[in-house]
Amino acid sequence: MVNFNVRFPDDIHARVRAQAATDRRSINSEILHLIEVGLTTVSADAGPPGGNPATPAPLSGKPDSSPV
């Protein structure tokens, strides 16, 4: 498992904390749940390439330096 530090604005932290209490989860478990739900929703909404206007354009700048 990867340890990943994230900074949350106070209002979002309060909302996540409240939702975690409602769902009887730890804040960490609630965040993981919300990310999983969000990623599942994004995957299910993805249509054909270029068909989703919410899909960000590729980043420009330095070319990919990964080996071919």
Rank of each mutant, 00 (worst) to 15 (best):
N5I: 08
L39Q: 11
N5R: 13
P67L: 03
A46Q: 14
D11Q: 03
T40I: 09
A54I: 09
N28E: 12
N52G: 01
R7I: 13
P58H: 06
S60W: 10
I12D: 05
N28T: 14
S29N: 15
A44T: 13
A21N: 06
D23S: 13
R17W: 04
P58T: 06
N5S: 13
S43R: 15
G51T: 04
G61D: 10
L39C: 14
L34R: 15
L59A: 14
L59Y: 07
E30D: 05
L39A: 11
R15I: 02
A21W: 03
V16E: 05
I31D: 03
V42F: 10
M1E: 01
R7S: 14
D23F: 07
S26G: 03
R15L: 09
G61F: 10
P48E: 15
R15K: 14
I27R: 01
D23G: 04
A14Q: 05
N3Y: 09
S43G: 10
K62F: 12
F8Y: 08
V16N: 04
H13T: 07
Q19Y: 04
S65H: 00
R24G: 06
G47I: 07
E36H: 11
V37W: 11
A18I: 02
H33C: 12
S60K: 15
L32F: 07
H33G: 08
A57G: 06
I35H: 08
L59E: 15
I12P: 00
T40C: 09
R15T: 06
V68G: 05
S26D: 03
A14S: 05
I27W: 01
